[in-house]
Design a protein around this nucleic acid. Sequence first.
DNA 1: TATTGTTATACTCTATAACTATA
DNA 2: TATAGTTATAGAGTATAACAATA
Lengths: 137, 137
Amino acid sequence: MSGNAAQEAWVLLTELFFADKPRRAAALAELGLAPMQAGALQVLDPERPMPMSALAQGLLCDNSNVTGIVDRLEAAGLVQRRPDEHDRRVKTLVVTPKGAEVRAQVGEAMATPPPALAALPATDARVLRDLLRRALG
Amino acid sequence: MSGNAAQEAWVLLTELFFADKPRRAAALAELGLAPMQAGALQVLDPERPMPMSALAQGLLCDNSNVTGIVDRLEAAGLVQRRPDEHDRRVKTLVVTPKGAEVRAQVGEAMATPPPALAALPATDARVLRDLLRRALG
DNA sequence: TATTGTTATACTCTATAACTATA
DNA sequence: TATAGTTATAGAGTATAACAATA
């Protein structure tokens, strides 16, 4: 069972992610965001308002969870609920200018690789990136 | 800023992890464990009892968080608190036989790579594993 | 005085089911 | 009937500060 390279790689990746937990938490705390609030901002597109249900799908969670998350983003002035023009059951989420700013900061913080990756020789980094592009492509 | 291979790789890895969230949640739900309970079981060593504080360190969280997590593991019969022999402030955590069983199941579930990784050609998987081994030392 | 583990408090996230208003 | 979003409820994790027992 231990002669599986993909499995070993996955375990190593899990360790890499877990070790990065404090850095992510600190970065989000500095922006005043809880994890799912940050995730929601990333899923939302400032240029393309989307319904609550689309956000739930993007966050891989239930519609009912999204209500509270959006409540808090709205209270922070980062997002607004707007009635949909065609279906009056739907509420469309608009990212405010301030929300777009914070969103960019979140994106930057989350895209910063942890030390172990940042320290990779350029060749290795490219090999890794290309391999992942192919795998997820 | 976008010409950074390590950064792109990190973003792809984040996506890979995020997409795997439902699978992990389902696997743990089947074992009747919440995420941090599963993490605690992984950090604990059935052969080497450790203090609460060591578990907190392993979980990268505060001592106060561990109290509740261990309460629940103990209620489930997976772990026991035992007084330390040398320092009466310390409580030592012992994994029960049932705990060791569940721990192994958690380990197996978490080591299962997501589809995108499992589908890698053997050569790619080895390249990835070796690269990560080097990066994480 | 410092440390281990607990308690208290307040907030966030999760899962489920019931509810409303629309369709 | 079915769907979008909300509400209600209960459990779980988080951060912080205060606390008791022990060192």
